[in-house]
C-alpha cells in the first residue's frame, strides 16, 4: 500500500517539473498540497528534487573559469537576445552554452578562440573536451551523425568521448583526422605543416585532394603532414608526449632546443619578443618553463648558458657577454 522510495522520487520529480514549468491547475495545486502531507517522506523527497535543480543552476551560474569564460561573441545569436539582462543571466547562458553546443541549432557552427597566452578548456555535449592553446581558433559543428571540428589556427588537444556511431572528425588545413575515442593534439602554425600528436587510441589521417593513402596513427606517435609530400610519422617516447603537451598546464618544455627555436616558441605565447644574438642562437636549452613569462625564461636561460639579458619594453635581448673570454 505504501509507495516505495523510488515511487516517491518519481512522484516528487513530476511535481518538481510541473511546478517549475508553472503548469499546475488550481486542482493540481490542491492535489500537490495533499500529496505533500500524505506521507512523511514526501516533503523531503520533493525538496530534494527541486533542490537538485537548484544545484545545477548555482553551479552553472558560478564564476568559475570554464563555465563563465565564454565571451559574448561566442554566444549564439538566439541566446544573445537574452544577454541584455544582467551579468548573472549572461553568465548562466554562457554556462548553458558550455554544455549545450548542440542545442544551438543542430547544424549551427560554434567558434571558440583564445588570445595570446590563454589556454581554455571547452566541454562539449558529448563529454568530449577540447583544450585550446594560445592564439587558437576552433569551430565546432555537431550533427546527429558526425562530430565535426575545424581547427582554423593554433593548437588544440582533443579528448574524444567514444561513440562508434558518431565519428569525431578534425579538419585542419587540408588534413582530416578521424577518431572514435582517443586523445590527440593538432597544430596549425604559420609556415609549418600540420602536426598531429597522438596520446591515446588511434587516429586516422588523410589529406584532402591528394593521392596519398590514409595513415593510421597510434598512441605516442607524432606525424607531420606537409602539403606536397607523404605524411611522416615517428614513434616517440611517452615522456616526450607528456612534455609536448605541457602547454595544457601553462608550461613549455624544451629538450635540447636552440635558443632561436625557443624564442620562436615563446612568440606564440606573448607579445614580448625574445631576440637572440646570432652568435648565441645555436646554443641549446633543456627544461620546463612558464609559457607566459618570456622574461623569466630569458633570464634563466642566460644564467644557465652564461649569456646576458637586456629587457627593453616589449623586447628581451639575449646576447653573449661583452667581455666574455670563452
Amino acid at each position: 500500500m505504501l509507495s516505495t522510495s523510488r515511487e516517491v522520487d518519481q512522484q516528487a520529480g513530476r511535481w518538481a517539473a510541473l511546478r517549475d514549468l508553472g503548469v499546475l491547475t488550481p486542482e493540481q495545486q490542491e492535489e500537490f498540497r495533499q500529496w505533500l502531507s500524505a506521507d512523511k517522506r514526501h516533503l523531503g523527497a520533493y525538496a530534494r528534487a527541486e533542490g537538485s535543480m537548484v544545484r545545477v543552476y548555482r553551479a552553472c551560474n558560478s564564476v568559475r573559469g570554464v563555465l563563465s569564460e565564454l565571451p559574448a561573441a561566442n554566444i549564439p545569436s538566439w541566446s544573445r537576445r537574452r544577454v541584455v539582462m544582467t551579468g548573472a543571466v549572461a553568465a548562466s547562458i554562457a554556462g548553458a552554452g558550455f554544455f549545450g553546443v548542440e542545442l544551438w541549432r543542430r547544424s549551427r557552427e560554434q567558434v571558440f578562440v583564445t588570445g595570446i597566452g590563454q589556454v581554455r578548456e571547452i566541454l562539449l555535449t558529448d563529454s568530449s573536451v577540447i583544450t585550446l592553446n594560445t592564439d587558437s581558433k576552433v569551430a565546432v559543428k555537431y550533427t546527429s551523425e558526425m562530430r565535426n571540428v575545424h581547427l582554423l589556427q593554433g593548437e588544440a588537444l582533443f579528448d574524444v568521448a567514444k561513440n562508434k556511431n558518431r565519428p569525431f572528425v578534425v579538419q585542419a588545413n587540408g588534413t582530416l583526422l578521424r577518431a572514435v575515442g582517443t586523445s590527440f593534439t593538432v597544430s596549425v602554425l604559420p609556415q609549418k605543416p600540420v602536426q598531429v600528436l597522438v596520446r591515446e587510441g588511434v587516429v586516422e589521417l588523410r589529406r584532402t585532394g591528394t593521392a596519398f593513402a590514409p595513415v593510421r596513427l597510434s598512441a605516442n606517435t607524432i606525424a607531420v603532414a606537409p602539403h606536397d609530400a607523404p605524411v611522416s610519422a615517428t614513434v616517440i617516447p611517452p615522456a616526450k608526449v607528456v612534455r609536448d603537451m605541457a602547454w595544457q598546464h601553462g608550461q613549455i618544455a624544451f629538450d635540447d632546443e636552440t635558443l632561436e627555436d625557443a624564442a620562436n616558441e615563446y612568440a606564440r605565447y606573448s607579445d614580448v619578443r625574445i631576440v637572440v644574438d646570432p652568435a648565441a642562437s645555436r646554443r641549446t636549452i633543456t627544461g620546463v618553463y612558464i609559457s607566459n613569462d618570456p622574461i623569466g625564461f630569458a633570464k634563466n636561460a642566460a644564467a644557465v648558458l652564461g649569456l646576458q639579458v637586456e629587457v627593453n619594453g616589449h623586447e628581451v635581448k639575449i646576447s653573449c657577454r661583452s667581455n666574455s673570454n670563452g
Binding site: V56, R58, A59, C60, L123, T125
Partner: peptide, 21 residues
C-alpha cells in the same frame, strides 16, 4: 554538477539546462 550532467542522456540534460539555466 559537471560530473552528473556529463552522465545524463543528452535530451534530458538539454531540457534541464534550457529550462533551469
Amino acid at each position: 554538477v559537471i560530473d552528473v550532467l556529463a552522465r545524463m542522456p543528452e535530451k534530458f540534460r538539454q531540457t534541464l539546462i534550457m529550462r533551469r539555466v
